[in-house]
């Protein structure tokens, strides 16, 4: 096919900062590519790594995790926990033969509509460059098992 590859990206936002940044990008009519579909969580701390693996295994080519800036989480410091999970998740993905760059963590305050739009545009380009994910093939090759077993393992490691 000659048409450019249009990646599908799932984005997780927290209710207080990054979802509001998306609201603001809208109100300010800031344009970004339509490849990202956002899901609202109360806080980035709610992000169970299973969600990311689920999205990737169901056909998403990339995942964006967003939250309030460090020190500004509305639940005090849960975004630090999100950050720890994210770092572990990237390692796990690498072990599974999946480019860690497919998952990205971005901080965006409720005032940073423009920043969020920019980050989305950048991520779309990055994922476009990586190409389609083809999850089942890659996971089988790397682990010989299934992805969700790995995710339970990550949750444990993060909190211990």
């Amino acid at each position: 096919m000659s048409e450019p590859f249009e990646p599908v990206i799932i984005g997780f936002t927290c209710n207080w900062c990054s979802y509001r940044a998306a609201d603001l990008a809208g109100t300010a009519r800031v344009k970004y590519p339509p490849n990202v579909r956002l899901i609202r969580l109360m806080c980035s701390g709610r992000l169970d790594p299973t969600f990311v693996l689920k999205a990737l295994s169901q056909g998403a080519d990339g995942v964006m995790i967003t939250g309030c800036h460090p020190g500004e989480c509305h639940y005090i410091e849960q975004n630090y926990k999100a950050m720890r999970r994210y770092l572990l998740l990237r390692r796990t993905l690498a072990q599974m033969g999946i480019e860690p760059g497919r998952v990205k963590l971005v901080w965006a305050s409720a005032a940073e509509g423009v920043k969020l739009a920019k980050e989305i545009s950048t991520l779309v380009e990055e994922i476009r460059a990586l190409g389609p994910l083809n999850w089942p093939g890659r996971v089988k090759m790397a682990t010989g098992g299934n992805g969700t077993a790995v995710s339970a393992h990550i949750s444990q490691e993060v909190t211990a």
Binding site: C43, L47, P49, T159
Partner: peptide
């Protein structure tokens, strides 16, 4: 509880 959900994500 304020409902942030961190514990939900963490419970093994």
């Amino acid at each position: 509880c304020q409902g942030c959900g961190t514990c939900v994500a963490a419970c093994p």
